[in-house]
Amino acid sequence: MEKVQAIKPGPKPKTPDGTPDERRRVTPPNQPKHPILKPHIHKPKD
């Protein structure tokens, strides 16, 4: 039987000019490190 290995998430991709990809989101605690990225806030379930 083969051993299954999980895919590890890599670093966020950067655009050719060196800025982070703006389509990604950042969690509020990490917002100061990435001021350009939009915050990712989970909405409470109904």
Score class of each variant (00 low, 15 high):
25 R>K: 12
23 R>V: 05
43 K>C: 02
37 L>R: 08
37 L>F: 02
18 G>N: 05
26 V>P: 05
28 P>H: 00
36 I>P: 00
32 P>D: 08
16 P>Q: 04
21 D>L: 04
26 V>F: 03
44 P>R: 03
36 I>S: 15
39 P>E: 12
17 D>C: 08
37 L>K: 03
29 P>D: 12
16 P>C: 01
40 H>Q: 13
35 P>V: 06
39 P>S: 10
21 D>Y: 02
32 P>F: 04
36 I>K: 15
39 P>N: 07
38 K>Y: 10
43 K>A: 09
14 K>M: 02
23 R>T: 14
40 H>S: 14
23 R>S: 14
31 Q>V: 00
17 D>W: 15
19 T>E: 11
27 T>Y: 04
20 P>M: 07
20 P>N: 07
34 H>Y: 15
30 N>H: 10
42 H>C: 05
31 Q>I: 01
36 I>Q: 15
16 P>I: 02
41 I>D: 00
39 P>Y: 11
28 P>K: 08
30 N>G: 00
25 R>E: 09
24 R>D: 01
41 I>Y: 02
43 K>W: 10
18 G>E: 05
33 K>L: 15
33 K>R: 14
30 N>E: 07
30 N>Y: 12
37 L>D: 02
42 H>V: 11
24 R>I: 04
44 P>K: 09
32 P>V: 08
41 I>M: 05
34 H>L: 14
25 R>W: 09
38 K>C: 05
17 D>Q: 11
30 N>A: 09
18 G>K: 04
21 D>C: 02
21 D>K: 01
26 V>C: 02
21 D>F: 01
35 P>R: 05
38 K>F: 10
28 P>Q: 04
28 P>V: 03
43 K>V: 09
17 D>E: 14
23 R>Y: 10
31 Q>F: 08
43 K>G: 05
18 G>D: 06
30 N>R: 07
17 D>I: 02
41 I>P: 00
15 T>A: 05
31 Q>K: 15
19 T>R: 12
22 E>H: 09
31 Q>A: 11
42 H>Y: 13
36 I>G: 14
45 K>Q: 12
41 I>W: 00
23 R>F: 09
43 K>D: 09
16 P>G: 02
25 R>G: 08
45 K>E: 13
39 P>L: 10
19 T>N: 09
